[in-house]
């Protein structure tokens, strides 16, 4: 049943068996076409299995992609180093911590350090030290380490 398939999918996710998760998500989708939970699981599992190309083509072949797929798409473009395309995609999205982090990472790669730092300084108070690490990396790269 669909419930059994989702239980199996959930088990694979918990065990970080991402390729298996993709296989079961496909089984769900063959029964329940366009199922958003299965589609979302498939895209995330493909990213976690390092199949960014597969994730992107899954996103793009989905008939009515849910809103958060836009973020996944921008992330995949970033991973493919299609930085301008990724930025364009982000600009059409509602701003969140996730979109801001991704935007700052793209700007870092584009060597636009001042813009990159600007985003870090506008992020909601860092909950994790890693945000500080990236912010400092930007400052160092911009020759503004004293800040």
């Amino acid at each position: 049943s669909l419930e059994d398939l989702f239980a199996s999918l959930n088990r694979h996710i918990e065990r970080s068996e991402f390729e298996e998760a993709v296989r079961v998500a496909d089984q769900v989708l063959s029964i329940s076409r366009g199922d958003e939970d299965a589609l979302r699981c498939k895209v995330v599992a493909l990213v976690k299995a390092d199949d960014v190309d597969g994730a992107l083509s899954t996103i793009r072949s989905s008939k009515s992609p849910p809103a958060d797929f836009r973020f996944f798409e921008a992330y995949c473009l970033y991973r493919q180093n299609k930085l301008d395309e990724a930025l364009q995609s982000l600009k059409s999205q509602e701003r969140s911590s996730a979109t801001m982090l991704l935007e700052s990472q793209i700007l870092f790669r584009l060597n636009k350090m001042d813009a990159c730092i600007d985003i870090y300084q506008n992020l909601p108070k860092p909950k994790i030290e890693s945000v500080e690490v990236n912010s400092v990396a930007g400052l160092v790269a911009a020759g503004r380490a004293s800040e």
């Binding site: 996710i13 699981c41 970033y78 982090l101 990472q105 790669r109 930007g138």
Partner: peptide, 21 residues
């Protein structure tokens, strides 16, 4: 070279499947 961590990756999350099982 300064290292930038891929923090955006942490925002690529699985949905909760509790209500589907």
């Amino acid at each position: 070279n300064p290292i930038v961590l891929d923090l955006a990756y942490n925002h690529i999350d699985f949905p909760s499947l509790q209500h589907r099982m």
